[in-house]
């Protein structure tokens, strides 16, 4: 996957989504703001790039290739030793599914395993998305 060489001081954002058009637009607005963007088109590739690039933020799609792969990625980060170092990496989960994991699976204890820092539905309100990205990266 293509990755712009990170300039010193710029924040790195990893987008994990198999919809190339979605990535193109999000990438365009993030790069315009000066962020470095790395992209992956599957959960497995996303986890690989996470270890490789240590991004400051992950934008993660839920449905990739007919399965809820995004949930699997959050679960892997939270619950496997391999990804211990990334437990604090903030995640914005994005999807065309209207409900967040908490709304989709109310009262299910398992929802803890897949809960992201933020949930946003597609299409993204790009201005609001940038605001949230800035806020998270200031922390």
């Amino acid at each position: 996957m293509s990755a712009t060489e990170a300039r010193p001081g710029t924040k790195v954002i990893l987008i994990v989504d198999d919809d190339e058009d979605f990535v193109t637009t999000v990438r365009a607005v993030l790069e315009r703001e000066g962020y470095t963007v790395v992209q992956a088109d599957s959960g497995a590739e996303g986890l690989r790039l996470l270890r490789q690039h240590h991004p400051d933020l992950m934008v993660l799609d839920v449905m990739m290739e007919s399965t809820t792969e995004g949930y699997g990625v959050t679960e892997a980060i939270k619950y496997t030793d391999e990804y211990n170092a990334f437990q604090q990496t903030p995640i914005i989960m994005v999807s065309s599914i209207q409900e967040s994991p908490d709304e989709r699976f109310p009262r299910a204890p398992e929802v803890d395993m897949i809960r992201p820092d933020r949930y946003m539905t597609k299409p993204l309100d790009l201005a609001r998305f940038l605001e949230i990205v800035r806020k998270i990266l200031r922390r």
Binding site: D21, F22, T25, I97, Q98, R104, L124
Partner: peptide, 21 residues
Amino acid sequence: VTFVTHQLKTPLAAVHQYLDV
């Protein structure tokens, strides 16, 4: 129903974001 809705909304979301940018 969630799944079907998702499949229908995905291309629409892509177009919307293109127009926005």
